[in-house]
């Protein structure tokens, strides 16, 4: 986050006299943020857990055409053994751990539930990341244009934001789910991202409204920088903190939104699977086979929780007023 004015064509400043008495190592802003982030314990724990889940989900059943180390597929049916109970066994005294053939149990078609949940995890993460990134890009563009140009551009864009805000997500999702859901999870995430940028757009606009009046923007304008150069080179780098934090948090809420949509039957369609979809599918089995409900639910909570903690850590790291630890 530089606030120095580096304008093209300006003659390079002569080297400022160095104060020899000062021995403090100079640290760039990005490095400071990074250091503050890695000292945030909760965020680091969350990051490790999230990475573990990610690696587990990707390597176990494989992805992008390579086969993982888990022998069973999420689509293969088979005989239901012992009512499909989980074979995962863990005890403290004596210390023992065994996964068994179906650690998370089986569903009513005899498919391995571990493989299903891992596949669901991949799909949910893919949708959430696509959705979060799309929403962030759209939100940043709309927010910065509205905040920089002001006037009627701002009025139109902000009213558009209000319209999208009052549009019930479920209506949009039903439309997307029925028309685009069959295309796969990436288009689903893309389209959901197209309606979930409103809060970021408002925030970025607020940031722009205050930053555009600052002296360094005035200086850039005075040497003839165009609006897009000012937006992308001068103001946006100064708003990168709230954008990154918001993108992270929007991924967490995307996981939950996807789960809710698939749960209601508007999101991912069978035979493909996602975490919310399997919970919705086996909602009635809660009494008799609770593990069908617990595993995907726990994973949703774990992913959303870790992402939220990472977002919180990032927020603290980007906050210049934060100087503890």
């Amino acid at each position: 986050m530089t606030t120095s004015i580096v304008t093209p064509g300006a003659a390079p400043e002569p080297e400022a006299p160095v104060h020899v008495t000062q021995v403090t190592e100079s640290v760039s802003e990005a490095k400071l943020v990074f250091q503050r982030f890695i000292h945030h314990k909760a965020a680091m724990i969350a990051l490790v857990v999230l990475l573990a889940i990610l690696v587990f989900a990707l390597t176990s059943i494989g992805a992008f055409g390579f086969h993982g180390w888990w022998p069973l597929s999420y689509a293969t049916t088979g005989p239901v053994i012992d009512g499909g109970k989980p074979t995962l066994h863990f005890s403290l005294s004596p210390l023992s751990f065994s996964a068994g053939e179906h650690p998370f149990g089986q569903d009513d078609l005899g498919r391995d539930y571990f493989a299903i949940v891992m596949r669901g995890c991949q799909q949910s993460l893919l949708i959430a990341v696509t959705m979060g990134l799309t929403g962030t890009v759209v939100g940043v563009i709309i927010g910065s244009i509205a905040g920089y140009f002001r006037g009627w551009v701002e009025a139109v864009l902000m009213r558009l934001t209000d319209v999208v805000l009052t549009l019930p997500t479920l209506v949009v999702a039903a439309f997307i789910g029925r028309r685009i859901g069959s295309l796969g999870v990436v288009p689903l995430g893309l389209f959901l991202g197209l309606v979930s940028w409103t809060s970021l757009a408002r925030m970025v606009r607020g940031q722009f409204l205050s930053l555009r009046e600052k002296e360094f923007v005035e200086a850039a304008r005075s040497v003839g920088a165009g609006p897009f150069r000012i937006i992308f080179r001068h103001i946006l780098p100064n708003s990168v903190g709230i954008i990154i934090v918001n993108a992270t948090l929007s991924i967490a809420s995307a996981i939950i939104l996807e789960a809710a949509l698939s749960f209601l039957g508007f999101g991912v369609k069978p035979p493909d699977t996602s975490l919310g979809q399997v919970i919705g599918l086996y909602r009635q089995a809660m009494d008799t086979r609770p593990w069908l409900f617990w595993w995907p639910g726990l994973l949703i909570v774990a992913i959303a929780l870790t992402v939220n903690f990472i977002g919180d850590g990032l927020r603290d790291a980007f906050d210049p007023q934060q100087d503890r630890g």
Binding site: A252, I256, A259, A260, F263, G276, I279, G280, R283, M286, F293, G297, I300, V301, A304, L305, N308, F309, D312
Partner: peptide, 14 residues
């Protein structure tokens, strides 16, 4: 608070 925030409403409800 983070835990509540990270739970889908249908999961809490069930």
């Amino acid at each position: 608070a983070f835990l509540c925030y990270s739970m889908p409403s249908f999961w809490i409800a069930t």
